[in-house]
């Protein structure tokens, strides 16, 4: 007789079903991302290097870019082009993006030379790479919606390139409304979701050790439930 057909097996199966889909989702979330991994007390000693700082610098710059973008959306181009406060917030939006790309490229170099896809971290690497591509698209559409001669010139140049690869009729850089929606709705949504996924994967798998270092053993809190390789 199998275990699932026995009275104790039925009781175990019933216990697993408690709470319906919300209970199942909670159990999955806690199993996948236990609190001690989500918000750890300690980090491995090899994290004491400046090269591990650039991921959080990238996320910090992204938060400033999104926050200033929300203020720009509230007030509109008449404000960010004409008033002194508007110009200041517009500059904060630009320079936070400059720093975001700057830090993200150094983060990318650091993780590439560390072969950060090791130790079941392939999805962490891939979500980061797609984040980079989404960021390029978000920055590009941002340049197109400045509503000045600069954006007009950039879109005029870009249309030839995009027409040459055959997507100009669908992704029309001269269509201001379409570019604005890509910049403030679609691409930030994709970038936000991918960034959240990327950070959760970093928490789940842990930061990648340097190539000649050993990852630490699970600490006392998680040792009881850790699966030995």
């Amino acid at each position: 007789m199998s275990d699932s057909a026995s009275p104790s097996g039925n009781a175990t199966r019933d216990a697993k079903r408690v709470g319906g889909w919300t209970g199942a989702a909670r159990r999955y979330a806690v199993r996948t991302l236990p609190p001690e991994k989500l918000l750890p007390d300690t980090q491995p000693a090899y994290m004491a290097s400046w090269i591990y700082v650039f991921g959080v610098l990238t996320v910090s710059s992204l938060i400033v870019a999104v926050a200033t973008g929300c203020v720009l959306a509230l007030e509109g181009p008449g404000w960010w082009h004409a008033s002194s406060v508007g110009k200041y917030v517009n500059s904060l939006h630009l320079w936070s993006v400059e720093l975001f790309m700057f830090f993200m490229v150094i983060h990318l170099w650091g993780k590439f030379f560390m072969a950060a896809w090791r130790g079941r971290r392939a999805m962490t690497w891939m979500t980061g790479a797609v984040c980079f591509l989404a960021s390029v698209g978000t920055a590009f559409t941002g340049y197109l919606v400045q509503q000045n001669f600069d954006s007009q010139w950039i879109s005029g140049q870009a249309k030839d390139g995009l027409n040459a690869v055959g997507i100009g009729a669908w992704f029309n850089v001269l269509d201001f409304g379409q570019m604005l929606m890509w910049h403030i709705v679609l691409l930030p949504l994709v970038l936000g979701l991918l960034t959240a996924w990327h950070v959760l994967l970093v928490r789940r798998r842990g930061i990648v050790p340097p190539i000649d270092a050993l990852a630490p053993e699970p600490d006392e809190q998680s040792a009881a439930t850790a699966v030995q390789p």
């Binding site: 300690t42 980090q43 491995p44 004491a48 290097s49 400046w50 090269i51 700057f102 150094i106 600490d219």
Partner: peptide, 25 residues
């Protein structure tokens, strides 16, 4: 200039020592 600055910051991040802290294992 921006690319040069990124290379400089990358090299500095690899070579410069990090301040000692607590709570690492």
């Amino acid at each position: 200039v921006v690319i040069g600055l990124m290379v400089l910051v990358f090299v500095a991040a690899v070579l410069l020592p990090f301040p000692k802290g607590r709570g690492r294992r």
